[in-house]
Structure formats: structure tokens, C-alpha cells
Design a protein around this nucleic acid. Structure first.
Length: 444
RNA sequence: GCGAACGUGGUGAAGUGGUUAACACAGCGGGUUGUGGUCCCGUCAUUCGAGGGUUCGAUCCCCUUCGUUCGCCCCA
């Protein structure tokens, strides 16, 4: 084994890729109904898009794939997340000037982070996410959460809960930050080294500390909610009221602060309680950001968004026994009984394909028995048998697998016979089993 | 960045310091040479992640390396 994928990356092979296709179809359908439009931004950006001057986050720098080509002084970075790129694009193309704000955008694509791989954490992983930019209204916080929540519910996921919190506006957060610094002032020397750094750079993150979580100072830590000004308090109340109205259950978690410091007001995290999720239990998470559009040179506009890890979503679905999609079965398999008729078999196959039948033939001159085994494995609904006699007569034999009904017909009548054999199914627009249709698209 | 476990064919795996590396599934061929899914027979790893070392001899012992998995850290 000389060549292999880089650590933390993986190939998505047939058998697995069908799950992705199914999820992506569902994602597009959901976003379509919610009137969110897709945005595609580059997979790499100028490094300063992700590495912002005032960003105190721990991960920026060491966990990004940043590179510089030999003859260039430009530093580029593979995107570790989408929000920054989307906001950059929003500003660059002056979408803030469009009528009918907010811009409601969604994306699906790969992200790259240089982290140690483990369950639910890859170096190249995929996110489905949304960003709603340009209007600040608690209704949008609610709508945006509702989209993600109903999406995962539509898949049938059960063991989920929404954790939500508010960081308030700048004024509230500054007040809270000051209170935290005051609170930890005496104890910080006894706390872990990360906390010491956070104390200076981003005191809110101390709440996330797992090392010192049992320390006495942590038990008496001031609560964000006591430092919210009227406006922030009202905003959060309206978000919660909206969630109530839409019947979305949530849990307020006042230690939830999220990693990035651009968040303001609403922050949330939807976690799975299924044990199969390992240490990575967050299915989707996000929050509101007030300063980002301005940071990228746009007007003072707010946005909200979240991102969902598709790999984790698949883990969660599989842990709950939810079937996401399998390889499609074959409409017909064309069997050739001797090498001499192989070319004819291919031509028959081509004719069927031209008429929309998913079909395949043999390319290895295998025995009849072996070809029949393929028929079974690929769950073909019909077999077309090609032999020398019939080629000479210009006919083919068609056998319907389900009831072994077999007919020898003129080649010209082959497609008509197939249509007749599978009439009922063809009338059904989707590919579900008749009478057991779970699709929604043909009811639109 | 830290810690632990693991790495044998297409797959799941057993195994031992010494020339046959079990077994099962899958594949292919045949029994049934133009009609499958059962059954029976045959066949299918000069090789045990890679590199180096110890040894008369290593898949098994030692070192290094790569990778996988799980956890810590972190999680945009």
C-alpha cells in the first residue's frame, strides 16, 4: 500500500455516497422551501479573511491550513468554516444593497482544519450551514434555528436537544466580561494555564474550562443574564418566545459561550445525546454576529447562522438506525450467452439506456451462472437474454424477475415490452415503491 | 500538542521464533456446456502496514515510521 489518503481525510465510496446524495437532496429541498439560496465561495481565501486582527480565538493560526506559493507573497488559507467567506462575499458583491433583505444563504461543502482526527472529527469534513444577513430581528434567529431543527427532525433523529444562551450586545458583554474578571481576580493564579490566557484575552471562555470546572470560584460565577441591558434582555426573550411559538424545545445554558468572539446575542448548539457520537456530540451550532459585516467593510448590519457537520449527522442517523439511502437497483441486466454476442448485448443495453432504463451487461464473458449472480446482487428487475440464434432472428428474450414471466419478442418491440412489464412503476413519478411512497416532491 | 489500544487476503478474522499462514464470507470455474438465488466439488495471501535491527531463521522479539481507533486539548 504505497498511496493512501492523508491523515484525517477519507474517500466516500459507492455504497456510502448514496447517503450523502440523499442528505444533500433533502438539504436543497428544505432550503428551497424556506426560501434560502445557495452560495458557493472559494475553498481557500486570503488568510486574513479567517485570521482577523482582533480575533482572540485559540484555534486560529495553529489549526488552519495556511500556505504560500513559492513565487507569491500572498498567504492563503483553506477555509476552516464558511461564515467568514460568506460575509466577505456579501460585502464584496454589495448584497447589502439588494432589496428584500435579509440575504438568506445556505451552503454545503468541505472545510479543512488541522486537528487530531477522532470520531466525528476529520481534517476534511463537510458542513451544511446557513447565514441570514442584513436584518436584525429575533424572528430570524427563530426561523434559522427552526430550519435546522426541522431538518434533523425530518430525518427522524430523536435524541436531540437545543442549548441556547445569549451573550447580549457589546455593552452587556463588556459589563459581564468586567464582572468575570473581577470574579476570577483572586483565583486566577490557581487556575489552569489556558484559563490564565483566557482571563486576559477572552474571559468568557473560562466558562468552558473543563479543568477547573469543579473549583469553588466556578460555582459562584456571575451569570450573563444579570448583566444584560434591557435591549439585550428583550431580544433574548423574543427569541425564546418565538421558539415556544414554533414548538421548538430548548434548554437555556448560561455557560454556553461558543468559541469565536464575534458572536453577540443568541448563541446555540444542538447536541445529540446518543452515545455513539463519542466525544463530538454537537450536530449543529451557531449564533448571531453583529460586527462581522462591518469588519469586512460593509455597513453596520447583523447576521445569524449555523453550521451542521454532515459526517456527524450521518453518525447520529446510523446510531438511531435511520436508513439514509442505498445503491439503486438495476432495471435490467443484459446477459450474453457467448462471447460472440457480447457486442450485440452492449448495443441492446445502449438502446435500453436511451429509453431511460438503468441497465448493465457483462464485459468478462462470464458464465451464465455468474451473470445471474450479478442479476441478484444488483437486484435487477428484468433480464434480457442475448444468444446467437435470437440475434440471427432479430429477437431478444425478456424475463421479469419478480414473477419469472418470460417473453421472446422482436428487437424492435423490446422497449415496448419493457414498458409494458413495468407499466405501473413507470407511471409513478418517483422511485419509491408504489403504495409506499414517502416522497414529497411529486405533491408540489 | 498529550495519552492508550491496534494494523494478517476483497471482507471478517485464528495463529506460531522455524518452509502447507487456520476457518468463514465474498469472487471465479465446474457439477447442471441456454435460465440465478439452495446444495456439492475445485480454486483463491511466496505473505502477515512500511523500513531497519536481533537471530542459523521472524508475521510472531526490539527500534523507527506511516496509518487506524478511542480519549484529552480544542472545536469557527
Amino acid at each position: 500500500m504505497n498511496y493512501q489518503v492523508p491523515r484525517g481525510t477519507q474517500d466516500i465510496l459507492p455504497g456510502e455516497v448514496e447517503k450523502w446524495q440523499m442528505l444533500e437532496d433533502q438539504i436543497r429541498q428544505f432550503c428551497h422551501v424556506y426560501d434560502y439560496d445557495e452560495i458557493r465561495t472559494p475553498i481557500f481565501e486570503h488568510t486574513n479573511v479567517f485570521k482577523r486582527g482582533n480575533d482572540a480565538s485559540d484555534m486560529v493560526n495553529k489549526e488552519m491550513y495556511t500556505f504560500q506559493l513559492e513565487n507569491s507573497s500572498t498567504s492563503l488559507t483553506l477555509r476552516p468554516e464558511m461564515t467568514a467567506g460568506v460575509v466577505r462575499s456579501f460585502v464584496e458583491h454589495k448584497l447589502f444593497g439588494e432589496p428584500d433583505l435579509p440575504a438568506k444563504l445556505y451552503y454545503v461543502g468541505p472545510m479543512c482544519r488541522h486537528e487530531r482526527p477522532q470520531k466525528g472529527r476529520q481534517r476534511i469534513f463537510h458542513q451544511f450551514g446557513v447565514e441570514v444577513i442584513g436584518v436584525k430581528n429575533p424572528l430570524l434567529d427563530v426561523e434559522c434555528i427552526a430550519l435546522g431543527w426541522s431538518f434533523i427532525n425530518s430525518l427522524g433523529l430523536k435524541d436531540l436537544k437545543v442549548l441556547i444562551n445569549t451573550l447580549g450586545d457589546d455593552e452587556s458583554r463588556n459589563a459581564y466580561r468586567a464582572a468575570l474578571k473581577e470574579h476570577f481576580k483572586g483565583a486566577i493564579d490557581t487556575m489552569c494555564s489556558d484559563c490564565k490566557r483566557r482571563y486576559e484575552q477572552n474571559p468568557l471562555r473560562i466558562l468552558d474550562c473543563k479543568v477547573d470546572k469543579d473549583a469553588a470560584v466556578m460555582k459562584t460565577v456571575p451569570k450573563m443574564k444579570d448583566y444584560l441591558n434591557e435591549e439585550s434582555k428583550t431580544y433574548f426573550d423574543q427569541v425564546l418566545k418565538g421558539l415556544d411559538a414554533l414548538g421548538i424545545p430548548y434548554e437555556i445554558d448560561d455557560t454556553l459561550v461558543r468559541g469565536l468572539d464575534y458572536y453577540t446575542h443568541t448563541v446555540f448548539e444542538v447536541v445529540s445525546e446518543n452515545k455513539e457520537m463519542g466525544a463530538q456530540s454537537t450536530v449543529f451550532a451557531g449564533g448571531r454576529y453583529d460586527g462581522l459585516v462591518e469588519y469586512f467593510g460593509g455597513p453596520e448590519m447583523s447576521g445569524i447562522g449555523w453550521a451542521m457537520g454532515i459526517e456527524r449527522l450521518i453518525i447520529a442517523c446510523e446510531a438511531e438506525g435511520i436508513l439514509l439511502g442505498e445503491k439503486a437497483e438495476l432495471d435490467a441486466y443484459v446477459i450474453s450467452l457467448s462471447p460472440e454476442v457480447a457486442l450485440h448485448a452492449l448495443s441492446v443495453t445502449t438502446t435500453l439506456r436511451a429509453n431511460g432504463y438503468r441497465c448493465e451487461c457483462d464485459y468478462q464473458n462470464r458464465s451464465l451462472k455468474a451473470q445471474y449472480r450479478t442479476v441478484d446482487r444488483k437486484k435487477a428487475k428484468a433480464v434480457i437474454i442475448i444468444c446467437e440464434d435470437e440475434v440471427a432472428q432479430g429477437s431478444v428474450t425478456i424475463k421479469r424477475i419478480a414473477d419469472k414471466l418470460q417473453k421472446t419478442v422482436a428487437l424492435d418491440d423490446m422497449v415496448a415490452t419493457m414498458d409494458q412489464f413495468f407499466e405501473a412503476e413507470n407511471e409513478h413519478e418517483c422511485n419509491c415503491e408504489p403504495g409506499n411512497c414517502t416522497c414529497t416532491h411529486h405533491h408540489e
